[in-house]
């Protein structure tokens, strides 16, 4: 992928998909912010990166909407950390967003011919 497109993806898609990404990552198990940021970076092989300045406001917003819930957890020998888990409501939103996203990607693919390339 050319550099320019990668940069654009990073900017535009990140904005639209950030919620979906976060919800997906806490779907199976509760995670703390650093963990979430790391996983996004790792799994996107460095293409997507959230810094503290943008990640946490987003977490707080999702929490306020009731889609995720944060809770301080203390483990032996560690400082306490704030773990986020998916709520029942968040699970519904995640399903819907996943569905929309898939449709969107399929549509883009059909138009751009990537699927059959």
């Amino acid at each position: 992928m050319p550099y320019k497109l990668s940069q654009m993806l990073d900017r535009e898609l990140k904005k639209g998909s950030a919620e979906l990404l976060i919800l997906s990552l806490v779907e199976d198990q509760p995670r703390h912010g650093y963990d979430i940021g790391n996983l996004i970076e790792q799994r996107s092989r460095g293409r997507l990166r959230f810094n503290v300045a943008s990640l946490y406001p987003l977490l707080y917003r999702l929490e306020r909407r009731g889609w995720i819930q944060g809770r301080w957890v203390e483990k032996a020998g560690q400082r306490r950390r704030r773990y986020y888990r998916l709520t029942a409501e968040g699970r519904k939103v995640l399903a819907a967003q996943r569905h929309s996203w898939q449709e969107f990607v399929e549509a883009i693919n059909r138009i751009t011919g990537i699927e059959h390339a």
Binding site: V52, A53, P57, L59, Y60, E89, V93
Partner: peptide
Amino acid sequence: EVADTDVMQREMRRSQKPAQEPPVAGGGR
């Protein structure tokens, strides 16, 4: 990580506001 102070402040402020969307989207609780 926190260099972009302006963005962080703006996003934080937004995240502190009550949800704008009508709550019917969820419908779980």
